[in-house]
Design a protein around this nucleic acid. Structure first.
Length: 137
DNA sequence: GCCAACGTTGGC
DNA sequence: GCCAACGTTGGC
């Protein structure tokens, strides 16, 4: 099973929105690398929900891949071009794990989140995943 | 609101 | 295929 991190601006779609819906489509990805990661996801994989453009930016909870990649209907291009997955709400952290805190954890220094900005869907290693969950309580 | 990073577009 | 212009992301 693989682990992922997925960014959303909370003003557009927040973890509270996902909690209410239970399951939601993760649409609107328009970056090829992010799309390829979406396509690599398997049902049951776990993903961090990350609030970008938030104060503070933070990992806020955990979700599960509920449906593997299928065409993104919000795309204006042909159906095979962009993909989305469905995600299921699993839990919200008691406190958001802010970007500052993530940066302060040595085990997380190589996270894609810190090394490569502006990638809205990205892989997380098993050891990084464990460190995040431990820090987030 | 600013702006650095970086991906995409399009002229050549 | 190069690369300048342009648009977007996302932290600050």
């Amino acid at each position: 099973m693989n682990h992922w991190l997925m960014k959303s601006e909370p003003e557009v779609f927040s973890i509270s929105d996902l909690r209410l819906k239970g399951v939601a489509g993760w649409d609107g990805v328009r970056n090829y690398q992010a799309r390829n990661y979406l396509r690599a996801m398997r049902k049951g994989d776990l993903a961090l929900f990350y609030h970008s453009n938030a104060r503070p930016p933070a990992a806020v909870g955990v979700m599960e891949i509920a449906r593997e990649a299928y065409p993104d209907p919000t795309s204006l291009e042909d159906a095979s071009h962009w993909s989305q997955v469905d995600v299921r709400f699993l839990k919200e952290f008691p406190e958001p794990l802010s970007l500052d805190k993530i940066k302060a954890i040595p085990a997380l220094k190589d996270m894609v989140l810190l090394k490569r900005g502006r990638l809205s869907v990205q892989p997380v290693t098993a050891s990084e995943w464990a460190a995040i969950l431990k820090a987030a309580g």
